Simulated assay, not measured.
Amino acid sequence: MTRTVLVTGVRGHIGARVAAALAGDPEIDRVIGVDTEPPSPPRGRDGGRDGPVLGRAEFVRVALRGPDLARVIRDADVDTVVHLSLVSGSGDRQAGGTGGGRSAMKEHNVIGTMQLLAACQRSATVRRVVVRSTTAVYGSSPHAPAVFTEDTEPVEVALHGYARDATEVETYVRGFARRRPDVTTTTLRFANLMGPGVDSPLTRYFSQPVLPTVLGFDPRLQFVHEDDAVEALCRTAGTDHPGVFNVAGDGVLLLSQCARRTGRPVVPLPSPAFRLVGGLARGARLVDFSPEQLTLMSHGRAVDTARLTAELGWRPKYGTAAAFDDFLRSRGGPGHLPLAAVDWLAGLVTKR
């Protein structure tokens, strides 16, 4: 039975939501949320900030790389650790950005996770560890399979950025699982998050007045709604589900379909020009597009979630299209036409 849960990364939107949801579970005695700063109130559907943050969960100001984390785990007799503080960039608001450059991001993601796992390894009470990862570990490549399963090896090994960090983190998690076979270790690889409260490089891209795309490419994209992400994390935090699981909404959307749903004009650019625009946008802090995000916008990525459904006896409530539509509605965009209707209208325009 789960007694005391420690959640890292509660400064971010998803971390705060997970901590609050777990704190509302009557079967859990205590939830401790740790981060370097407390969370901000969540974004409401009207764009404002309102609502509870951590509920009855306790906040403790602790850095992953500091010595105090092990003390918190020991003193609170923590039995479940939910690690959610992986960041995809210095401005990643989902996990509370590092506020520094690439070196600070890597130190936070990789070294911070190593310190956390070391603390868990020394603990006599920890019995379950859940780690948030990303489908970016599979990469995006013209040579990639149509659909990735958890056992698919990436065609091209990530050499930099968030995908590289996540790959290294998963390596350390597997090492921890071998050293502590008595601890149930779960790794959840999430597709790109969508929803009213999600503020990420991809949601900021779709919020721009004009959408640049890569000329000649129409990548398949897959999303997971924030509500489903929170549900998956809470389910794996409450009961034992060892292994690695893809988490994504059913179906895919082509980038062109996403663009039509936003109602914004599209500007196709040659690949070098698209990368230049992406670099300029990063410099202007409009969209923090990492190299792996730029690759995703060329080749896309889709994953299979059959293992998750079989293991948890549950599947995400929102499909990819529904998650994207809910995001658009929260930002005042169209997002209300069903996919078939959008494609039918596009076909009429093409025929004319």
Rank of each mutant, 00 (worst) to 15 (best):
A284N: 09
R93K: 11
L286E: 12
E311Y: 03
T187E: 01
V60Q: 12
T184V: 15
A19V: 00
I32M: 09
V214T: 15
A340S: 14
V173D: 01
P338G: 10
C120Q: 02
D50L: 05
T184E: 12
C258Y: 01
P219G: 13
N109D: 08
I111C: 04
G101Y: 01
D79V: 08
L308C: 13
A95D: 00
P42F: 10
P242S: 14
W314R: 01
L202V: 15
V18H: 12
K351A: 15
V210C: 05
F190C: 00
R331K: 10
P212A: 04
S90F: 02
V214E: 10
L255G: 10
A146E: 07
V173W: 04
A232E: 07
S123L: 04
A70L: 05
L269Y: 05
G96Y: 01
G161S: 09
V230S: 07
E231N: 12
T213N: 09
P242I: 04
D240K: 14
D250M: 11
L348N: 12
G243L: 01
P52Q: 03
P268W: 11
R122W: 02
L86C: 08
V342W: 02
S88T: 01
D92I: 04
F327I: 03
P38S: 08
M105Y: 02
A322P: 07
V137I: 15
F327A: 11
H241E: 07
Y318F: 15
P142M: 10
